[in-house]
C-alpha cells in the first residue's frame, strides 16, 4: 500500500512543486490549502504523515498541529520559514515531531520523512520489557504503564523513552538522542530533544515541574532514573 502524505501549504506553487518531488519518491500526495480543509482531508483520507506549513491563513499551523495531535499519533513535520527559537519551540510544543526550514531541498525533506516513517514501525522485538521506578515499558507492544495505568505517548515520545530506558541511569547526550530517535547527525537541533523531553515529562512524571524520572544533567544531556 502506498504511503499517503498530506501537505498543508497555502502557496500553490510550493504545493505543486513539493507534490511533484514527493511523488517522484513513490509516495502519494494529498493536498490542503487551509487548516480547515486539512482537518477535513485528514479525517476522510487518514494520511500516514502530515507536512504542515506554519504560516497558514485562518487556522494557523500550530493550531492544526494541536488538532491533529489531539486526535491521532500521525507523524507531523512542521515546515517553517522562520527557524527562530520561538517558532520552532511553539511548533514542537503544539505536537510536531520534527521541523524543516524553507527552502528545504526535496531530497532532505524525503530523508526526514523516511526517518519519521521508520520510527512509526514497531520496535525491534529484541527489546525486552523493562521497569524503571513506577514506569513499565513494553517496547514490543508499544505500551507504557505508570503505576499500572497505561499512558498514551506519541511514537516519537515512546521511542525517546525507550532509548533512555535502554541505558537507564546513564546520561545520554542530546546528540546521541538526536541520532538515535530522529536520525540526525551531530548538527541536529537540540531543541527537538528538549521539547520532546518536556512533553514526555508531562505524561510520565507525577510532578512535571520537578521531574524524578527524566532528569536533566546540565551541559551533558538527559538520563532516566527510578
Amino acid at each position: 500500500m502506498t504511503i499517503k502524505i498530506l501537505t498543508i501549504e497555502d502557496d500553490e506553487r510550493i504545493r505543486t512543486a513539493v507534490r511533484f518531488a514527493l511523488e517522484d519518491e513513490g509516495w502519494s500526495v494529498l493536498e490542503a490549502e487551509t487548516g480547515e480543509q486539512a482537518l477535513e482531508v485528514f479525517n476522510s483520507r487518514t494520511p500516514d504523515l502530515v507536512l504542515v506549513d506554519i504560516g497558514l491563513p485562518g487556522i494557523d499551523g500550530f493550531e492544526v498541529c494541536r488538532s491533529l495531535r489531539g486526535a491521532s499519533d500521525v507523524p507531523i513535520i512542521m515546515v517553517t520559514a522562520r527557524d527562530d527559537t520561538h517558532d520552532v519551540v511553539a511548533g514542537l510544543e503544539a505536537g510536531a515531531d520534527d521541523y524543516v526550514t524553507k527552502p528545504i531541498a526535496p531530497k532532505e525533506l524525503s530523508a526526514r520523512i523516511r526517518a519519521l516513517l521508520r520510527r512509526v514501525k514497531p520496535e525491534d522485538s529484541t527489546s525486552s520489557p523493562r521497569t524503571v521506578g513506577d514506569l513499565e515499558i513494553i517496547p514490543e507492544e508499544g505500551v507504557v504503564r505508570k503505576s499500572g495505568t497505561e499512558i498514551h505517548l506519541t511514537k516519537t515520545e515512546f521511542h525517546l523513552l525507550c532509548e533512555l530506558s535502554d541505558q537507564a541511569g546513564k546520561v545520554l547526550s542530546r546528540e546521541h538522542l538526536l541520532e538515535e530517535v530522529w536520525g540526525y547527525d551531530y548538527f541536529g537541533d537540540g531543541r527537538l530533544v528538549d521539547v520532546h523531553v518536556r512533553r514526555l515529562r508531562t505524561k510520565v512524571e507525577t510532578d512535571p515541574a520537578h521531574p524524578r524520572h527524566v532528569v536533566t544533567v546540565r551541559g551533558m544531556g538527559y538520563k532516566l532514573q527510578a
Binding site: 502557496d11 510550493i14 513539493v18 511533484f20 518531488a21 524553507k102 527552502p103 531541498a105 526535496p106
Partner: peptide
C-alpha cells in the same frame, strides 16, 4: 525563502 523553495523543488 518561499519562491526559493518552489525553485529548489522544481
Amino acid at each position: 525563502r518561499s519562491p526559493l523553495m518552489t525553485l529548489r523543488a522544481s
